[in-house]
Design a protein around this nucleic acid. Sequence first.
DNA 1: ATAATATTAGTAACGATTATCGTTATTATT
DNA 2: AATAATAACGATAATCGTTACTAATATTAT
Lengths: 127, 127
Amino acid sequence: MLQKHSKQREAILAELSARKDHPTADDIYTVLRKSHPNISLGTVYRNLSALADSGKILRLHNGKGSDRFDADISQHCHFKCTVCGCVSDFSADAGSVLPPLDRECFEGRIDGYSLMFYGVCEKCLQK
Amino acid sequence: MLQKHSKQREAILAELSARKDHPTADDIYTVLRKSHPNISLGTVYRNLSALADSGKILRLHNGKGSDRFDADISQHCHFKCTVCGCVSDFSADAGSVLPPLDRECFEGRIDGYSLMFYGVCEKCLQK
DNA sequence: ATAATATTAGTAACGATTATCGTTATTATT
DNA sequence: AATAATAACGATAATCGTTACTAATATTAT
Ligand SMILES: [Mn+2]
Ligand SMILES: [Mn+2]
Ligand SMILES: [Zn+2]
Ligand SMILES: [Zn+2]
């Protein structure tokens, strides 16, 4: 996978890297249509999936609703507003607190975790 | 919602309460068909959603793959095996560690969180 | 340049879930 | 107990996010 370069993939990664709002595949598609009028939604999905599989970006499963993507691949948590649906980085210290788990009572292997907080964002609270 | 009693909802809740494997809607549907040959998959989905909305059961978003449900509504974490797909309760102390977050740098309201660990379960490791 | 092939655009297909709708079961009222 | 009101049902169509397919195009190696 990812053996040949493509203008489309470059544009997708550039767009994702330029923003911090954890966009969906369709969000990116809508924006890129302006500069790449013929780009296909399937191409956006295919490249985002390939980039995520190769570890270059992060895929955030989002319960109901579409997946979101993140160019920041460092371990960090997220917060989702249950009113407006926005997803933002969450600078809690939870991430640094979690790793030292008591793995003694668990015989499997832990490769990672996903931690999502739910609530109401500042903007929605003020309405 | 949930204004009238129904045999189907009773059976769905009973089945979910009797197991600890976090079944999908279709899992429950398949089992209940034996005792309730005419039950509809839509009915299972509708009741599981209503029960989850009213807080009587828990819905676990599962990334790709269908949602799973849990009759244990206490705050607890889960572990998903990326090989066989099984989802099990995870008795880490992470849940008790998380609540005291530094909420000072966050202006929104946190209502809860979902924490899922990924890895390989004991059974799959032994193969 | 030529050849090989990964990637694309466009579109069909898919799986999970929700919506619709005429019928049935539950509950309240007479 | 019969009647009326309506929530819930079963069957199935529709929706949504995503993936699969295919002929054409773009990239890379020769
Ligand atoms: Mn992020
Ligand atoms: Mn559980
Ligand atoms: Zn909000
Ligand atoms: Zn396993």
